[in-house]
Amino acid sequence: MSIQHFRVALIPFFAAFCLPVFAHPETLVKVKDAEDQLGARVGYIELDLNSGKILESFRPEERFPMMSTFKVLLCGAVLSRVDAGQEQLGRRIHYSQNDLVEYSPVTEKHLTDGMTVRELCSAAITMSDNTAANLLLTTIGGPKELTAFLHNMGDHVTRLDRWEPELNEAIPNDERDTTMPAAMATTLRKLLTGELLTLASRQQLIDWMEADKVAGPLLRSALPAGWFIADKSGAGERGSRGIIAALGPDGKPSRIVVIYTTGSQATMDERNRQIAEIGASLIKHW
Protein backbone atom coordinates (compact mmCIF):
# COMPACT_ATOMS: atom_id res chain seq x y z
CA MET A 1 0.00 0.00 0.00
CA SER A 2 1.42 3.40 -0.98
CA ILE A 3 1.79 6.23 1.51
CA GLN A 4 -1.10 8.09 -0.14
CA HIS A 5 -3.34 5.02 -0.02
CA PHE A 6 -2.36 4.56 3.63
CA ARG A 7 -3.32 8.17 4.31
CA VAL A 8 -6.82 7.86 2.87
CA ALA A 9 -7.42 4.46 4.46
CA LEU A 10 -6.67 5.94 7.87
CA ILE A 11 -8.77 9.10 7.55
CA PRO A 12 -11.50 7.66 9.83
CA PHE A 13 -8.84 6.13 12.15
CA PHE A 14 -7.00 9.39 12.73
CA ALA A 15 -10.19 11.40 13.06
CA ALA A 16 -11.50 9.03 15.71
CA PHE A 17 -8.53 9.84 17.95
CA CYS A 18 -8.57 13.60 17.44
CA LEU A 19 -9.65 15.91 20.21
CA PRO A 20 -13.33 16.90 20.08
CA VAL A 21 -14.12 19.61 17.57
CA PHE A 22 -16.08 22.66 18.57
CA ALA A 23 -17.99 25.08 16.41
CA HIS A 24 -16.91 28.70 16.33
CA PRO A 25 -19.63 31.25 15.56
CA GLU A 26 -16.98 33.74 14.44
CA THR A 27 -16.90 32.00 11.08
CA LEU A 28 -20.66 32.46 10.67
CA VAL A 29 -20.21 36.15 11.45
CA LYS A 30 -17.82 36.28 8.49
CA VAL A 31 -20.28 34.37 6.28
CA LYS A 32 -22.99 36.90 7.08
CA ASP A 33 -20.54 39.72 6.44
CA ALA A 34 -19.77 38.18 3.04
CA GLU A 35 -23.48 38.31 2.23
CA ASP A 36 -23.49 42.01 3.04
CA GLN A 37 -20.36 42.66 1.03
CA LEU A 38 -21.57 40.71 -2.00
CA GLY A 39 -25.21 41.69 -1.78
CA ALA A 40 -26.08 38.05 -2.36
CA ARG A 41 -27.03 34.84 -0.62
CA VAL A 42 -24.17 32.76 0.78
CA GLY A 43 -24.58 29.14 1.82
CA TYR A 44 -22.06 27.52 4.14
CA ILE A 45 -21.62 24.21 5.90
CA GLU A 46 -18.80 22.57 7.79
CA LEU A 47 -18.91 18.83 8.58
CA ASP A 48 -16.67 16.65 10.68
CA LEU A 49 -15.26 14.16 8.17
CA ASN A 50 -15.29 11.22 10.56
CA SER A 51 -18.69 11.55 12.21
CA GLY A 52 -20.59 13.62 9.67
CA LYS A 53 -21.63 15.99 12.46
CA ILE A 54 -22.53 19.50 11.33
CA LEU A 55 -20.14 21.91 13.03
CA GLU A 56 -21.49 25.13 11.53
CA SER A 57 -23.98 26.02 8.83
CA PHE A 58 -25.73 28.97 7.24
CA ARG A 59 -28.55 28.51 4.72
CA PRO A 60 -27.67 24.78 4.61
CA GLU A 61 -30.99 23.77 3.05
CA GLU A 62 -31.37 26.50 0.48
CA ARG A 63 -30.73 25.72 -3.17
CA PHE A 64 -27.69 27.10 -4.97
CA PRO A 65 -26.34 26.49 -8.48
CA MET A 66 -23.77 23.67 -8.48
CA MET A 67 -21.73 25.05 -11.34
CA SER A 68 -18.54 23.05 -11.88
CA THR A 69 -18.57 21.52 -8.41
CA PHE A 70 -20.76 18.81 -9.96
CA LYS A 71 -17.67 17.47 -11.72
CA VAL A 72 -16.51 15.74 -8.54
CA LEU A 73 -19.86 13.94 -8.30
CA LEU A 74 -19.62 13.05 -11.99
CA CYS A 75 -16.21 11.47 -11.59
CA GLY A 76 -17.49 9.67 -8.51
CA ALA A 77 -20.21 8.17 -10.70
CA VAL A 78 -17.61 7.21 -13.31
CA LEU A 79 -15.46 5.54 -10.66
CA SER A 80 -18.44 3.58 -9.37
CA ARG A 81 -18.87 2.19 -12.88
CA VAL A 82 -15.17 1.32 -12.95
CA ASP A 83 -15.56 -0.52 -9.65
CA ALA A 84 -18.55 -2.41 -11.07
CA GLY A 85 -16.60 -3.48 -14.18
CA GLN A 86 -18.74 -1.29 -16.44
CA GLU A 87 -15.99 1.19 -17.34
CA GLN A 88 -12.21 1.32 -17.62
CA LEU A 89 -10.12 4.33 -16.70
CA GLY A 90 -7.74 3.46 -19.53
CA ARG A 91 -10.46 3.45 -22.21
CA ARG A 92 -9.69 6.06 -24.85
CA ILE A 93 -12.50 8.33 -26.04
CA HIS A 94 -12.24 10.11 -29.38
CA TYR A 95 -14.16 13.28 -30.12
CA SER A 96 -14.33 16.03 -32.73
CA GLN A 97 -14.17 19.80 -32.99
CA ASN A 98 -17.96 19.84 -32.87
CA ASP A 99 -17.84 18.39 -29.34
CA LEU A 100 -15.76 21.25 -27.96
CA VAL A 101 -17.58 23.81 -25.81
CA GLU A 102 -16.53 26.99 -24.07
CA TYR A 103 -13.57 26.61 -21.71
CA SER A 104 -11.91 23.36 -22.69
CA PRO A 105 -8.18 24.04 -22.12
CA VAL A 106 -7.18 20.37 -22.06
CA THR A 107 -9.53 18.62 -24.46
CA GLU A 108 -8.93 21.18 -27.21
CA LYS A 109 -5.33 19.96 -27.38
CA HIS A 110 -6.24 16.31 -27.97
CA LEU A 111 -8.56 16.33 -30.97
CA THR A 112 -6.21 14.01 -32.84
CA ASP A 113 -5.41 11.41 -30.21
CA GLY A 114 -8.43 11.61 -27.89
CA MET A 115 -8.22 11.13 -24.13
CA THR A 116 -8.68 8.28 -21.69
CA VAL A 117 -11.46 8.25 -19.12
CA ARG A 118 -8.82 8.83 -16.45
CA GLU A 119 -7.43 11.82 -18.33
CA LEU A 120 -10.91 13.25 -18.85
CA CYS A 121 -11.69 13.06 -15.13
CA SER A 122 -8.38 14.70 -14.34
CA ALA A 123 -9.10 17.49 -16.83
CA ALA A 124 -12.65 17.96 -15.53
CA ILE A 125 -11.59 18.27 -11.88
CA THR A 126 -8.11 19.80 -11.98
CA MET A 127 -8.73 22.23 -14.85
CA SER A 128 -12.55 22.33 -14.85
CA ASP A 129 -12.54 21.40 -18.55
CA ASN A 130 -16.14 21.59 -19.78
CA THR A 131 -15.82 19.32 -22.80
CA ALA A 132 -14.23 16.67 -20.58
CA ALA A 133 -17.27 16.86 -18.31
CA ASN A 134 -19.70 16.52 -21.23
CA LEU A 135 -17.82 13.52 -22.62
CA LEU A 136 -17.90 11.87 -19.19
CA LEU A 137 -21.60 12.64 -18.83
CA THR A 138 -22.14 10.83 -22.10
CA THR A 139 -20.41 7.72 -20.73
CA ILE A 140 -22.86 7.44 -17.84
CA GLY A 141 -25.98 8.28 -19.86
CA GLY A 142 -26.31 12.03 -19.40
CA PRO A 143 -27.32 14.45 -16.62
CA LYS A 144 -30.40 12.46 -15.58
CA GLU A 145 -28.25 9.41 -14.91
CA LEU A 146 -25.97 11.42 -12.65
CA THR A 147 -29.05 12.55 -10.73
CA ALA A 148 -30.18 8.91 -10.49
CA PHE A 149 -26.73 7.92 -9.17
CA LEU A 150 -27.04 10.58 -6.47
CA HIS A 151 -30.55 9.42 -5.57
CA ASN A 152 -29.23 5.90 -5.14
CA MET A 153 -26.65 7.32 -2.72
CA GLY A 154 -29.47 8.82 -0.67
CA ASP A 155 -29.12 12.36 -2.02
CA HIS A 156 -32.62 13.34 -3.15
CA VAL A 157 -31.75 17.03 -3.35
CA THR A 158 -28.84 17.42 -5.76
CA ARG A 159 -29.80 17.33 -9.42
CA LEU A 160 -28.15 17.82 -12.77
CA ASP A 161 -30.42 18.65 -15.68
CA ARG A 162 -28.26 20.16 -18.40
CA TRP A 163 -24.83 19.99 -19.97
CA GLU A 164 -21.89 22.36 -19.97
CA PRO A 165 -22.00 25.30 -20.25
CA GLU A 166 -25.80 25.81 -19.99
CA LEU A 167 -25.91 24.33 -16.49
CA ASN A 168 -24.18 27.47 -15.17
CA GLU A 169 -27.09 29.76 -16.06
CA ALA A 170 -28.11 30.19 -12.39
CA ILE A 171 -31.60 31.60 -12.96
CA PRO A 172 -33.19 32.64 -9.63
CA ASN A 173 -35.70 30.09 -8.27
CA ASP A 174 -34.75 27.59 -10.99
CA GLU A 175 -34.08 24.22 -9.35
CA ARG A 176 -32.26 22.83 -12.36
CA ASP A 177 -28.60 22.00 -11.78
CA THR A 178 -28.73 22.89 -8.09
CA THR A 179 -27.87 21.45 -4.71
CA MET A 180 -28.02 22.50 -1.07
CA PRO A 181 -24.87 22.93 1.03
CA ALA A 182 -25.97 20.19 3.45
CA ALA A 183 -26.73 17.73 0.66
CA MET A 184 -23.48 18.40 -1.18
CA ALA A 185 -21.39 18.07 1.98
CA THR A 186 -23.02 14.78 2.92
CA THR A 187 -22.64 13.37 -0.58
CA LEU A 188 -19.01 14.43 -0.84
CA ARG A 189 -18.29 12.80 2.52
CA LYS A 190 -19.89 9.55 1.33
CA LEU A 191 -17.78 9.56 -1.83
CA LEU A 192 -14.53 10.18 0.05
CA THR A 193 -15.01 7.99 3.12
CA GLY A 194 -17.96 5.65 2.58
CA GLU A 195 -18.21 2.18 1.11
CA LEU A 196 -19.79 3.32 -2.15
CA LEU A 197 -16.39 3.37 -3.87
CA THR A 198 -13.46 1.04 -3.41
CA LEU A 199 -10.43 2.32 -1.53
CA ALA A 200 -8.55 2.71 -4.82
CA SER A 201 -11.37 4.79 -6.31
CA ARG A 202 -11.72 6.94 -3.19
CA GLN A 203 -7.99 7.58 -3.35
CA GLN A 204 -8.19 8.46 -7.04
CA LEU A 205 -11.02 10.92 -6.47
CA ILE A 206 -9.25 12.72 -3.64
CA ASP A 207 -6.01 12.76 -5.66
CA TRP A 208 -7.76 14.55 -8.51
CA MET A 209 -9.24 17.08 -6.09
CA GLU A 210 -5.91 17.59 -4.35
CA ALA A 211 -4.37 18.39 -7.74
CA ASP A 212 -6.95 21.12 -8.48
CA LYS A 213 -5.19 23.91 -10.39
CA VAL A 214 -7.95 26.52 -10.69
CA ALA A 215 -9.05 27.13 -7.09
CA GLY A 216 -5.96 28.97 -5.87
CA PRO A 217 -7.64 32.31 -5.01
CA LEU A 218 -10.28 30.64 -2.79
CA LEU A 219 -9.68 28.48 0.30
CA ARG A 220 -6.17 27.51 -0.78
CA SER A 221 -5.05 31.11 -0.46
CA ALA A 222 -5.83 31.01 3.28
CA LEU A 223 -4.13 27.70 4.09
CA PRO A 224 -1.08 27.65 6.37
CA ALA A 225 1.88 25.50 5.39
CA GLY A 226 1.37 21.82 6.02
CA TRP A 227 -2.40 21.85 5.67
CA PHE A 228 -4.17 19.42 3.34
CA ILE A 229 -6.85 20.44 0.86
CA ALA A 230 -8.66 18.63 -1.92
CA ASP A 231 -11.23 20.86 -3.58
CA LYS A 232 -13.29 21.80 -6.60
CA SER A 233 -14.52 25.28 -7.42
CA GLY A 234 -17.32 26.49 -9.64
CA ALA A 235 -18.36 29.74 -11.31
CA GLY A 236 -21.59 30.68 -13.01
CA GLU A 237 -23.77 33.50 -14.24
CA ARG A 238 -25.50 36.05 -12.01
CA GLY A 239 -22.56 36.35 -9.66
CA SER A 240 -22.47 32.67 -8.78
CA ARG A 241 -19.40 31.10 -7.20
CA GLY A 242 -18.79 28.00 -5.13
CA ILE A 243 -16.30 25.55 -3.69
CA ILE A 244 -16.43 22.12 -2.09
CA ALA A 245 -13.44 20.87 -0.14
CA ALA A 246 -11.97 18.32 2.25
CA LEU A 247 -9.28 19.95 4.35
CA GLY A 248 -7.38 19.84 7.60
CA PRO A 249 -4.07 20.39 9.37
CA ASP A 250 -1.15 17.96 9.66
CA GLY A 251 -1.39 16.92 6.03
CA LYS A 252 -4.72 15.09 6.26
CA PRO A 253 -8.36 16.09 5.83
CA SER A 254 -10.63 16.22 8.86
CA ARG A 255 -13.54 18.39 7.70
CA ILE A 256 -15.75 18.94 4.69
CA VAL A 257 -16.50 22.56 3.80
CA VAL A 258 -19.02 23.73 1.20
CA ILE A 259 -19.54 27.37 0.24
CA TYR A 260 -21.91 28.68 -2.43
CA THR A 261 -23.02 32.16 -3.39
CA THR A 262 -25.33 33.48 -6.09
CA GLY A 263 -27.03 36.70 -7.11
CA SER A 264 -24.11 39.09 -6.64
CA GLN A 265 -23.12 42.02 -8.81
CA ALA A 266 -19.57 41.79 -7.44
CA THR A 267 -16.58 41.02 -9.62
CA MET A 268 -15.05 37.55 -9.70
CA ASP A 269 -12.07 38.85 -7.73
CA GLU A 270 -14.34 40.16 -4.99
CA ARG A 271 -16.29 36.89 -4.82
CA ASN A 272 -13.01 35.02 -4.55
CA ARG A 273 -11.81 37.37 -1.81
CA GLN A 274 -14.94 36.90 0.28
CA ILE A 275 -14.68 33.11 0.07
CA ALA A 276 -10.99 33.31 0.94
CA GLU A 277 -11.84 35.44 3.99
CA ILE A 278 -14.39 32.86 5.12
CA GLY A 279 -11.63 30.29 4.80
CA ALA A 280 -9.24 32.44 6.81
CA SER A 281 -11.80 32.73 9.61
CA LEU A 282 -12.43 28.99 9.53
CA ILE A 283 -8.72 28.27 9.91
CA LYS A 284 -8.17 30.91 12.59
CA HIS A 285 -10.92 29.40 14.72
CA TRP A 286 -10.26 25.75 13.83
Rank of each mutant, 00 (worst) to 15 (best):
V42Y: 05
E237S: 12
E87K: 10
H110C: 03
P181K: 00
P25H: 14
S57E: 02
F70E: 15
E210K: 13
L111V: 05
E145I: 06
G52F: 07
L219Q: 10
T261H: 10
E26M: 15
P165C: 06
E270T: 11
F70L: 09
T147V: 06
G234M: 14
R255M: 10
G85T: 06
G76H: 08
S80G: 14
G216Y: 09
T131A: 03
A132P: 00
G216I: 03
P165G: 08
S264G: 10
E102P: 04
R255N: 05
E108N: 15
D161V: 05
F149S: 07
R241C: 15
A185E: 01
T262L: 09
G194A: 11
L47C: 15
G90Q: 10
D231H: 10
A124R: 00
V42K: 01
L100G: 10
Y44H: 03
K53T: 07
L160F: 05
G39A: 04
A211H: 15
L146D: 01
L192N: 02
F64K: 01
G263I: 06
L120R: 00
G251T: 05
P165L: 07
M66C: 06
G85R: 08
T187R: 15
T131Y: 03
P253D: 06
S221H: 05
L79A: 12
T69W: 00
G248R: 11
G239F: 15
P253R: 10
P224V: 04
G236P: 00
I283T: 03
L73R: 00
R159I: 14
V257Q: 02
A148V: 04
T193Y: 02
D161R: 04
E195V: 10
F228N: 15
L199D: 07
A211D: 15
A225Q: 02
M184V: 04
A235E: 14
I93Q: 15
S281T: 05
L192F: 12
W208H: 07
G279R: 01
E277Q: 11
G279T: 06
T158W: 01
G52T: 10
E102H: 02
Q203N: 04
I256M: 12
A225T: 03
Y95F: 08
K232P: 00
I140Y: 06
E62T: 02
G226Y: 13
E145H: 12
Q274G: 09
L79N: 11
D113M: 02
S80D: 14
M209W: 14
R92D: 14
V106I: 15
I140T: 08
T179D: 00
A170L: 02
H156P: 10
M67H: 11
A132G: 15
I140E: 07
P25V: 11
V78S: 09
K213P: 04
D161Y: 02
G76R: 00
K144P: 03
R271H: 15
T158Y: 01
F228M: 13
T193M: 08
R41A: 11
I125T: 09
A84M: 08
G154P: 06
R59A: 12
D33L: 02
L160W: 05
E175P: 11
S51P: 08
E119P: 01
Q274W: 09
M180C: 03
E62C: 02
L74Q: 03
Y95C: 06
L49D: 07
S254T: 09
S51F: 15
A246P: 01
T178M: 02
Q37T: 04
A148C: 10
T138H: 13
G239E: 09
R220T: 12
T139S: 09
T139F: 05
L205D: 01
D207R: 08
T267E: 09
A266Y: 10
E166V: 10
Q88K: 14
V31H: 01
M66T: 10
P217I: 15
P181R: 00
R92Q: 10
V257T: 13
I206S: 07
G236L: 03
E270N: 03
R273I: 05
C121M: 04
Q86K: 04
A133Y: 01
G248L: 01
M115P: 02
A170E: 02
R241W: 08
S254A: 07
D269N: 08
V72F: 08
L146Y: 05
L218V: 03
E166K: 12
Q203H: 02
P65S: 08
G194V: 07
L197W: 04
A266G: 06
T187V: 12
L223G: 04
R159A: 13
A280C: 11
Q88R: 13
D177K: 00
M153I: 03
A170N: 03
Y103S: 03
E61H: 07
T158R: 00
E61D: 08
A225N: 03
D269A: 05
Y103T: 05
G85K: 07
F149N: 10
K232R: 02
L192M: 07
L146Q: 03
E26R: 09
I125C: 07
R273N: 06
A77S: 12
L205Q: 15
S240N: 02
T69K: 00
W163A: 06
V258A: 02
E169Q: 02
R202G: 09
W208A: 13
G251A: 10
L38E: 13
T262Y: 08
V29A: 08
K32W: 15
D161I: 02
E26V: 14
E166S: 14
E26W: 15
N173Q: 13
A170M: 07
P65D: 01
Y44C: 06
Y260G: 01
H151L: 09
L74A: 14
P105C: 05
I171L: 15
K213M: 04
P65W: 02
L28Q: 13
A185R: 00
Q203V: 07
D161N: 07
V106M: 15
V157E: 14
I125Q: 02
A230T: 08
G279P: 01
S264A: 10
I244E: 01
D269S: 09
A211S: 09
H110N: 03
S264Y: 08
I244W: 00
M184Q: 02
E166H: 15
P25M: 14
K232F: 00
H110V: 11
E175T: 05
D231G: 10
L55Q: 15
L219W: 09
G114P: 08
S68I: 01
K32I: 14
N168K: 07
D207K: 03
W208C: 09
L223C: 02
F149P: 01
A182R: 07
R91A: 14
P253M: 15
R202Y: 03
A185N: 01
D36F: 04
P217S: 11
R189S: 04
E145L: 12
S221C: 06
W208E: 06
R189V: 05
I229L: 12
L136D: 00
M268C: 08
A280V: 14
K232N: 01
Q203S: 03
R189M: 03
H110R: 13
L199T: 10
Y260M: 10
T112N: 14
E145R: 13
N272F: 09
D155Y: 01
L205K: 00
G263C: 13
A185K: 01
K109H: 08
L167K: 01
H24D: 08
A211N: 03
W286V: 05
N50V: 05
D250P: 02
E61F: 12
I229Y: 10
K71S: 00
F228I: 15
L111M: 06
I125N: 02
L192G: 05
E277H: 06
L223A: 10
N152E: 15
R271Q: 09
F70D: 01
L49Y: 11
A185S: 08
V78Y: 08
H94P: 04
R202N: 13
G76I: 12
P181Q: 00
N98R: 10
Q274V: 08
E56T: 08
V31I: 12
L136I: 13
